Simulated assay, not measured.
Amino acid sequence: MLSLQKILLLHVLACLGRLAHGSDIIHGTKAPENSMHYMASVQNNMGQHVCGGFLITEDFVVSAAHCNDSSLTYVVLGKHNLKNGNHQKIKIENKIIHENYQQVGLGNDIMLIKLSEKVKLGHGVEIIQLPPAEINLKENQVCQVAGWGKTKTHGKPVDELRVVNVSVITSKNCEEQWPGLPANVICAGGYNTTKGFCQGDSGGPLVCHGFAVGVVSFNYYKNCTYPNKPNIYTDISKYRKWIDEVLRKKKRLSKVI
């Protein structure tokens, strides 16, 4: 039998409608060309942007588990404008979904993407650091989220990377707005603001003090310009052990091969 908490969460999720892919930054600005070189565009076999992501080693990108799709084929790094500029386009070798992930909105929304070859660092490509196993984000702490896509509710995608500042919302306040909120998440932006992400920006990072502390997971359906629920991110600090184990395992296999 489902618990009352899970029933409430499923009711909220039913209100979300379909979560669209693509990164939709609301009331942001164009990201400076000399910034955020860890940002990745995860693309399908047609070369179309599907989800965001971010580079954590020379051959691994973090994204959201709900981005997983059989059409995902490439990761593009080193470009802020998806239509032009030099970039590195690397084939996806493997996608590792967290074993406890079920569906978006129920938590554990994190995926590691193994690249078929190591990226060349420098020239617009760099790694972003992950937080330690425990972090202490403060209420109203200002962080950043970035991505490609729509800039308003029902708007059109954009080609150039955009970024916006968002403020952290405490778990207590967030749970009041999201009954049955899953564990291991961070709330930032959205509720009581006009800034954040819209349907999508899936897999992009929440960056605080230079660390990628969160992965864009979900928000409240269709209301981006004046959202009435906080934006929800997977808390990376709670998955450091899992990430480190995956990286160690892949490294051992590479040495054997």
Score class of each variant (00 low, 15 high):
80 H>Q: 06
100 N>F: 06
112 L>C: 03
83 K>P: 08
47 G>D: 13
55 L>H: 04
31 A>V: 01
40 A>L: 01
39 M>L: 02
75 V>K: 08
121 L>I: 02
50 V>Y: 12
94 N>L: 08
43 Q>N: 02
97 I>L: 08
42 V>F: 06
56 I>F: 13
94 N>Y: 08
102 Q>K: 13
43 Q>L: 03
61 V>T: 09
73 T>N: 03
45 N>Y: 12
90 I>L: 10
115 L>P: 07
78 G>P: 05
42 V>M: 08
58 E>T: 08
38 Y>G: 06
57 T>K: 05
74 Y>S: 07
105 G>W: 00
41 S>Q: 06
91 K>E: 13
52 G>T: 10
42 V>D: 09
29 T>N: 14
75 V>Y: 05
36 M>A: 14
96 I>R: 02
72 L>C: 02
53 G>R: 05
85 G>C: 00
61 V>F: 04
126 E>L: 01
25 I>S: 07
39 M>N: 01
66 H>S: 15
126 E>D: 06
87 H>Y: 04
47 G>S: 13
92 I>S: 00
126 E>I: 06
105 G>Y: 07
99 E>R: 12
53 G>S: 09
54 F>N: 05
66 H>L: 12
98 H>T: 07
27 H>T: 14
26 I>Q: 05
110 I>V: 12
60 F>P: 08
35 S>F: 13
116 S>F: 01
115 L>G: 05
78 G>M: 03
21 H>C: 14
124 G>A: 11
79 K>I: 07
125 V>A: 04
20 A>K: 15
104 V>G: 14
26 I>V: 05
109 D>K: 10
86 N>C: 14
30 K>E: 15
106 L>S: 03
114 K>W: 10
49 H>N: 04
95 K>S: 06
